[in-house]
C-alpha cells in the first residue's frame, strides 16, 4: 500500500507539505525566541525581518510565534475531532448495520436528526455556554456534529459484510457480536475509515477556523488560525503579513490533507488497480 501511495505524485507532495506543517506546529515555538503572548513594544506592526520572521502585529506580538501556536491548536482540534467523529461513526454505523432491527432504526434516527440540525447554528448557540471547558468542548461539539454521514456509509458496508460467509461462519461458531464487529468487520472498513478520518481533519480545521473567525471558537488569549485570520483580515491590504501567513498556512494544510486523502483512497481501494492476470469470466459478445 505504501508503495502504491509512493507512486502517486500528489500524495508525495501532500505528505511532504503535511509533515512540514506538523513540524512547524510542533517545533515552531521552540525555534522562535518569542512566545505567542510576548509583546515587543519596540516593534509594532513591523514587516518581516530577521528579528521577527513574520513581522509583528499591532500590539507588537510576534506573528511567527502566534502562527505556530495557532497552527498547533488548529491541528490538535482537527485531530481530536477526526478521531472522535470517526470512532463514533464506526461504532454507531457498525452496530446499526450488524444488529439491524430496532438498534438500527433508533441509531439511524439519531443520525438523521443530527443531520437535519443546522450545525453552525448549534455551535453558535452552544459554544458560549461551554466556554469554561475550553477548546476540548469545541472539539467535542464539532465531532458530535460530524459523524453522521460516515456512520451511514459504515452501516451500509457493515450490512453487506454481515452477509459475507466468514462473518456468517463466525456467528455460527458462537463468536460474540462485539468480537465479530471488532475482529471481522472493522478491519475490512479500516481503509475507508482512515481515508475518511483524513478528510475529516481538514473539515474540522476549516470549521474551527470559521467559528473562531466569528468569535465562537478559540477564545483569547489563546489563538488559533481562525482568530489570527480574523484579526488580520481588516488590515490584510495594509499589513499583509498579519493576514496572509495564517491564511496561507490554513490553505496549505487543507490542500495537503486533500491530496493525501485522495491518494489514500486510491491506494486502499484495490479496484483502482488493474488486475495482473486474465480476468475470469470477462466475456463480451454472444454466440
Amino acid at each position: 500500500m505504501l508503495g502504491r501511495l509512493a507512486r502517486h505524485p500528489g500524495a508525495l507532495c501532500g505528505l511532504a507539505l503535511l509533515l512540514a506543517l506538523v513540524a512547524l506546529a510542533v517545533l515552531g515555538p521552540y525555534a522562535c525566541r518569542w512566545s505567542f503572548t510576548d509583546v515587543d513594544y519596540t516593534a509594532l506592526r513591523q514587516p518581516p525581518d530577521a528579528r521577527h520572521w513574520m513581522g509583528t502585529n499591532r500590539i507588537g506580538q510576534d506573528v511567527f510565534a502566534q502562527v505556530a501556536h495557532g497552527l498547533r491548536k488548529s491541528l490538535l482540534i482537527g485531530a481530536v475531532v477526526a478521531a472522535v467523529a470517526t470512532g463514533l461513526a464506526a461504532a454507531v454505523g457498525a452496530s446499526a448495520g450488524y444488529f439491524g432491527g430496532w438498534t438500527d432504526r433508533s441509531l439511524m434516527f439519531v443520525a438523521d436528526l443530527l443531520l437535519v440540525l443546522p450545525g453552525f447554528l448549534v455551535l453558535v448557540v452552544l459554544a458560549p455556554r461551554l466556554r469554561q471547558w475550553g477548546w476540548l468542548a469545541l472539539a467535542g461539539l464539532l465531532a458530535l456534529l460530524g459523524w453522521m454521514v460516515t456512520a451511514r456509509a459504515v452501516r451500509g458496508m457493515t450490512r453487506s459484510l454481515k452477509e459475507r460467509q466468514f462473518v456468517v461462519a463466525a456467528r455460527l461458531m458462537g463468536v460474540g457480536p462485539v468480537r465479530i464487529i471488532w475482529r471481522h468487520i472493522l478491519p475490512h472498513l479500516a481503509s475507508f475509515l482512515i481515508t475518511d478520518a483524513t478528510v475529516t481533519v481538514a473539515g474540522a480545521v476549516v470549521s474551527e477556523a470559521g467559528l473562531s473567525y466569528f468569535g465562537f471558537g478559540v477564545q483569547p488569549p489563546d489563538v488559533s488560525l481562525g482568530t489570527l485570520i480574523a484579526d488580520g483580515s481588516d488590515v490584510a491590504l495594509v499589513y499583509p503579513w498579519m493576514f496572509f501567513f495564517p491564511a496561507g498556512l490554513l490553505t496549505a494544510f487543507v490542500l495537503a490533507v486533500s491530496l493525501l486523502g485522495n491518494a489514500l483512497r486510491d491506494a486502499l481501494d484495490p479496484t483502482t488497480v488493474r488486475p495482473a492476470g486474465p480476468p475470469r469470466g470477462a466475456v463480451s459478445g454472444l454466440a
Binding site: A169, R183, P187
Partner: peptide, 13 residues
C-alpha cells in the same frame, strides 16, 4: 460448521 466455499468463509485479513 464447515462452510461451502473456503475462499469466502475465511476472513481474508
Amino acid at each position: 460448521l464447515v462452510p461451502q466455499d473456503p475462499a469466502s468463509s475465511l476472513d481474508p485479513r
